[in-house]
Design a protein around this nucleic acid. Structure first.
Lengths: 201, 201
DNA sequence: CAGCCGTCTTGACGGTTGTCCAAATTTCTT
DNA sequence: AAGAAATTTGGACAACCGTCAAGACGGCTG
């Protein structure tokens, strides 16, 4: 059957794309979008630069795939905490622990995301994906906040958009400080969230 | 007197730097930091590319000067409103009007700022300036908020950092949507601020 | 007026980039 | 197993980049 064979091929093709994207994320996170060339990505990986051009029409296509792939995992980070927390404090501490951990260990990936989002302001080709990822992150924050409110028999006193803007702003600032070797960046972020969340939800 | 002559020369030198920086801002805002070459900046201006190298040690030096210069004006944008507003509503409406205006007419400059701030996460040379500008923007927001609270005989129920994070997050999101031709970007921002500010201050 | 110094122009240099392609290799189909 | 298709390779290409330097210009000083 032709259709089945085609689907299989497509799946294999896509699996290879993701394999390449994961290899590329390494270098991209190190240098950022602008400074990274396809050749450099290839050299830091087990692939040749021609393969990347075979699987991706473009450098833009590649980085879109990279960040989409990473962020798809990202948005599930707190799901287990939200599902298992039985009171407000458990949720708060579980959230803060994950937040601090990802800020520390995945700083390079996070800065790549902010890089891409800024580039989307200049490059229209990025906008659709960026806006979509932004929406999914907003939903992620909203799941945490509304569950936190629910555990206190309350309702979040803010729109999803405003809440996401707040957390995103705080996270971005903390990330920059952390990358600038500011030891207090993470503790300050945690303190701020610990104070803010109960007043909003 | 040698010292006076030297000071004069220095001032002239600095004035020229700013002149060049302003010319460069045009192109930088159009294309972003990464995509803009010194040659392109020169071609879109009345200067040759050599002059830029004469006045700036570096491309990094140039863009730092550009954004510093622009942001120095930026932080005074709301001062007159804050000084002249006689009640909460005047302050609110004055603030919102300026906010909407700058988002619309200076969108290119604002995206350049976000571009630079993202690059600072990768390029250490940018960090000092970026952190400094961020502080001055935080102070700008704080002046507005604390005056708004004062006019209602209240105190802001938030730290300067958290408040800035919130407004920065909202502004950034609105800017991206505005650049993506979302007609509702600006109205949505205004609505959000109109609702948020009274609850915080 | 002659010479100097700060300013500016112009072109060249080495290196890097994205892109493309023809050939080699692997995988799949029949 | 043999031929076709898909995949991979690695080099060639033109365009572009930041940097630099040798010299031209022009006003000021002595």
């Amino acid at each position: 059957m032709a259709a089945a064979a085609e689907t299989l091929r497509d799946e294999k093709f896509n699996a290879r794309r993701i394999e390449l994207a994961e290899a590329a994320l390494e270098t991209l996170g190190e240098l950022g979008f602008a400074r990274t060339s396809l050749r450099e990505i290839a050299q830091n990986s087990a692939f040749t630069h021609g393969v990347f051009h075979y699987y991706f029409s473009d450098k833009l296509d590649l980085i879109c795939c990279c960040v989409r792939h990473y962020k798809a995992k990202c948005v599930t980070r707190y799901d287990e905490v939200v599902a298992s927390a039985q009171d407000r404090e458990q949720l708060m501490e579980g959230f803060l622990a994950k937040l601090a951990a990802t800020l520390k260990t995945e700083a390079h990936m996070h800065r790549l995301w902010y890089d891409l989002r800024s580039q989307a302001m200049f490059e229209a080709a990025f906008r659709k994906d960026v806006l979509e990822i932004d929406k999914s992150l907003e939903a992620m924050i909203w799941r945490i906040a509304s569950r936190y409110a629910e555990l206190g028999n309350k309702r979040p006193a803010s729109s999803p958009a405003a809440l996401y803007a707040l957390f995103d702003g705080l996270f971005q600032s903390a990330l920059l400080r952390h990358l600038a070797d500011d030891e207090k960046a993470i503790p300050d972020l945690l303190d701020e969230v610990r104070r803010l969340l109960p007043t909003i939800c």
